[in-house]
């Protein structure tokens, strides 16, 4: 019995036309569970095909065609875009982006785990705290980034307060440094780290911790041997959710880093605007996608196979 099975229709009052078609369609579907599955999957599949798969294919194709004079591509085939990427400048950019993404992920994990842990143990304040974690998403990312500029400027809130309180004479140069870029990225992506870890911790059976305690484990040992391993799936998922978008970030480094460094996201953006080099931009995007795929592969390997409790 599936949701699509309908009870037999008695000879009731005649309904609107088109009802017959619907009934026939449902009747056709009823004995075909595979067709049912595809029908339900259809909207999502069409969306993915149209707005993801097709553009990726187009991008792939562009990356191996010669560039047009004023942008766009000319017909033909060349791997010039990919060989161009092997120039040390671009490899450095890739490496720098990668390092930044890793740093963001590590910092987010260090900052996010305690937050998730506290929320999971906060009893009746749970909903409120979760709401506060998600609240920043209600404002635009750009607005939040500008807010950080106002905080970190030489004449911004933090420095003004420090000088007014007499703790410093000169402002601390916080903006347009690697610190500000990292701070902006961690701030922006922290909820993506907190929520999966929280979900993982929530599922933790408190009896397990009691059992560990009776077996002789002090609080630190309980954390190390029970809580941490069992929240690992959430932690890994959170790392992935932070790492992948921060690989593609470019706004944050532009606004908070003073546009003094190029990340792969900036490079790709340049190719499609100023440089009018679509094939190269497509190739860079594709290479970035490969890096992401590699990360996903690592995740699939790392995830403990049997402990799929919800993740």
């Amino acid at each position: 019995m599936t949701a699509l099975d309908m009870p037999p229709q008695a000879a009731g009052p005649r309904s609107a036309p088109g009802n017959g078609l619907r009934r026939r369609a449902l009747a056709w579907l009823a004995p075909r569970p595979q067709a049912q599955a595809w029908t339900l999957l259809a909207p999502g599949t069409v969306w993915m095909l149209g707005f993801f798969l097709v553009p990726v294919i187009v991008m792939c194709a562009y990356s191996v065609m010669p560039r047009g004079e004023y942008g766009g591509v000319d017909p033909g085939f060349t791997i010039e875009a990919y060989t161009r990427f092997l120039h040390p400048v671009y490899l450095t950019i890739l490496e720098r982006t990668f390092v930044l993404a890793v740093a963001t992920t590590v910092l987010s994990a260090l900052a996010g785990y305690p937050v998730a842990y506290t929320i999971a143990r906060s009893g009746r304040w749970k909903s409120l705290l979760l709401f506060l974690v998600v609240l920043p998403f209600w404002t635009s990312f750009l607005v939040r980034t500008f807010a950080m500029i106002f905080l970190m400027r030489d004449t911004g809130l933090i420095n003004s307060w420090l000088i007014a309180a007499g703790l410093r004479q000169e402002p601390i140069p916080m903006l347009y440094t690697p610190f500000s870029v990292l701070a902006g990225l961690v701030y922006g992506y922290l909820p993506f780290m907190v929520l999966p870890i929280y979900a993982s911790l929530e599922k933790l059976d408190p009896a397990l911790l009691e059992a560990a305690e009776v077996l002789g484990a002090r609080p630190a040992a309980r954390f190390r041997r029970v809580t941490l391993p069992l929240s690992a799936p959430g932690l890994i998922a959170g790392c992935l959710l932070v790492f992948i978008p921060s690989l593609g970030s470019y706004l944050t480094s532009d606004l908070l880093g003073g546009a003094k460094e190029l990340l792969i996201g900036n490079l790709v953006q340049n190719q499609f605007s100023t440089a009018r080099n679509w094939p190269f931009g497509s190739a860079a995007s594709f290479i970035l996608m490969i890096v992401v795929l590699a990360a996903v592969l690592v995740y699939l390997r790392l995830r403990p196979p049997d402990t799929v409790r919800g993740w």
Partner: peptide, 8 residues
């Protein structure tokens, strides 16, 4: 590639 090239 073939499809996209044709499209482009």
């Amino acid at each position: 590639t073939t499809i996209a090239g044709w499209l482009a």
